[in-house]
Design a protein around this nucleic acid. Structure first.
Lengths: 129, 129
DNA sequence: TTGACGTAGCGAAAGTCTTCGCTACACTGT
DNA sequence: ACAGTGTAGCGAAGACTTTCGCTACGTCAA
């Protein structure tokens, strides 16, 4: 049993969250269109998934609007952070750096992005000493 | 359906892989001891999970040895890389850097580790330009 | 009002993951 | 040979996730 406050999104739920992150608050129709393109999902299924997610607290909806408008309760950043922490915990036994190294290694990073990492690195070193 | 070559380990499977990564090739008994400590699993369950994992190709076993000795087919690094890629794909829409930034941010990194990241960064910039 | 259409929802089926009871086999010491 | 102990495996149950058929309701135009 997962505790109510921190339900890790499942596969399809995550897929729906991604759509919502990209589109912003949307009615079922829009969400469904994307999901259906991606994997041929039936409309009923999309509605059901959203109702499950609503129950889990992964999305909220405005029932005033007609049709209802769904929005994610988690930002992409928050969800990402959770999943990263989980990954670090589960695979790297808590060593975040191993993960960073892997991620860097698999990244085709742009110069700007690398600079960004450097900046963060500087910041961290500053705080630390 | 997952294709046979790349079965993503499930929750418990990952837990068992971690144990194997730590202990090295081991008989069920040793694996079970750890798993049981961690979550009170029944011996039968451990055996079953291993047989499932064997079928999926996540572990191999030496049946000559008595009792049989299990070893992971994936290194921690390989498994980690796969999961990181999956995470990047699923949550960050392919932007590895966002993940790196998150991971860095959630890391209580030592000076040596930060230096290590810098070194890798240098290397990447070198190759790129 | 009536029919067509878009939207919402329930409940059950199908699929996957995890659990374990029970059975069976191999080896050891008596 | 036999009981005791450790090891291996099957198959089914339970939990959770994902799917969708079918029903119902509201709105709009004829």
């Amino acid at each position: 049993m997962r505790r109510p406050g921190s339900p890790q999104p499942t596969e399809v739920e995550l897929q729906i969250l991604r759509i919502l992150w990209e589109l912003g608050p949307s009615p079922v129709r829009d969400i469904h269109q994307r999901l259906n393109e991606a994997k041929g999902t039936n409309y009923s299924t999309t509605v059901k998934m959203l109702s499950v997610m609503l129950q889990k607290g992964l999305v909220k909806r405005d029932e005033e609007a007609q049709p209802h408008v769904y929005r994610p309760t988690l930002t992409r950043d928050k969800a990402g952070k959770r999943l990263v922490n989980e990954l670090i915990e589960k695979v790297y036994d808590g060593s975040a750096m191993s993960l960073v190294l892997h991620a860097l290694a698999s990244a085709a990073a742009s110069r700007e992005e690398l600079a960004e990492v450097r900046r963060l690195l500087d910041e961290m070193e500053g705080k630390q000493s």
